[in-house]
Amino acid sequence: MSTAPIVTPPSSSSTCSLLTWKDPVLTGKVFGSIIVSLIVLKYINLINLFFRGAYVGLLLSAAAEYAGKLVTGQGFVTKYKPAAKSYAKQFNDVIIPQLAELNLKIEEEFQKIIYSHDIETTLKAAGLSYILYKLTSWFTLFTLIAASVVILFTVPVIYQTNKKEIDAAVANFTKLAKNKTAEYTSLAHKAAAPHIETIVKSTGPVGKFVKSKFPTRTAGSTVGDSKPTFGTAADELPSATTTGSSKFPDVPSASLGDHKSTVEEFVDHAPEHAQNAQSEFTHF
């Protein structure tokens, strides 16, 4: 039993070697074939040519088969046709499983982007979509594909040749961009501060309340070390609370034990006071 040959997909290393022109002959053939195909697709209507050749070939096949049956009793096409080889089985056994696995991975990644499983990835996809929207509104699809092919076969080899210089330039540009971003952010804060203060004053107590909820930065404070402290209405009240002209009475300084001893002393001397009062009444 003959088995179909196993076709292994090109690895990332072979693709990198192809794009970096490690084998100039092979890369030149691939690059030239892609460019020629794009030019042919641009200026030649292949679909029209395909259907034209299809109807001419089918008419000739039917005529040859009919003439052979009419003359010899067996059609020429049936008699002289080459041995047919099935490519569908090889395609189903080798290509279809890989396409099915790739389709599942594409669907999984697509759902992660659509349903924001990773917000950063979704934002990157949104940015890429916006860039493609702008590019497709400025250039045709053929121009974009041709430019992408040229960039794909030129940028990697240029980067590999001038790797140190390009990395240094990118690092300097990134540092400059961060500094400029911090500078513009500081200027924006300084420019917006008077307007925010005006809004706070115009809104009255509401603005003051909202402002009190934001931490106040000092000269020695840092973002990671300082923690905002929020006051409450009870903390802002004075220690002695007054209402109008009246004042709440102070709490007596004597303790409950002193009052208890006074009551017990009164109970102990109650009989003596009663006898003195009775003698005075009898004498009267």
Results as ranks from 00 to 15, higher is better:
V94P: 03
L99T: 14
L99Q: 09
L99V: 15
A100V: 09
L102K: 13
L102H: 10
L102S: 14
L104S: 13
L104R: 12
E107K: 15
F110E: 10
K112G: 06
I114K: 15
I119L: 07
T122M: 01
L123D: 04
K124Y: 03
K124A: 06
K124S: 01
Y130S: 13
I131G: 09
L132A: 11
K134D: 07
L135I: 15
S137D: 07
W138R: 02
F139H: 11
T140H: 06
F142C: 09
F142Q: 14
I145N: 05
I145V: 14
A147N: 04
A147V: 07
S148Q: 04
S148W: 01
S148K: 10
L152F: 02
F153S: 01
P156D: 02
P156M: 06
I158T: 04
I158E: 02
I158D: 02
Q160R: 11
N162C: 07
K164W: 01
E165P: 03
I166R: 00
D167T: 12
D167W: 04
A168W: 00
A171C: 00
N172M: 09
T174D: 00
L176A: 13
T181F: 12
T185D: 06
T185M: 08
A188F: 00
A188G: 03
A191N: 03
P194M: 06
I196T: 07
I196D: 04
G204L: 06
G204D: 04
P205E: 13
P205A: 15
V206R: 08
G207Q: 02
G207S: 05
P215G: 15
R217P: 01
R217N: 08
T218M: 07
T218C: 07
T218Q: 07
A219S: 10
G220Q: 14
S221R: 11
S221A: 12
T222Y: 05
G224L: 15
D225Q: 11
K227C: 05
T229G: 09
T229R: 15
F230M: 11
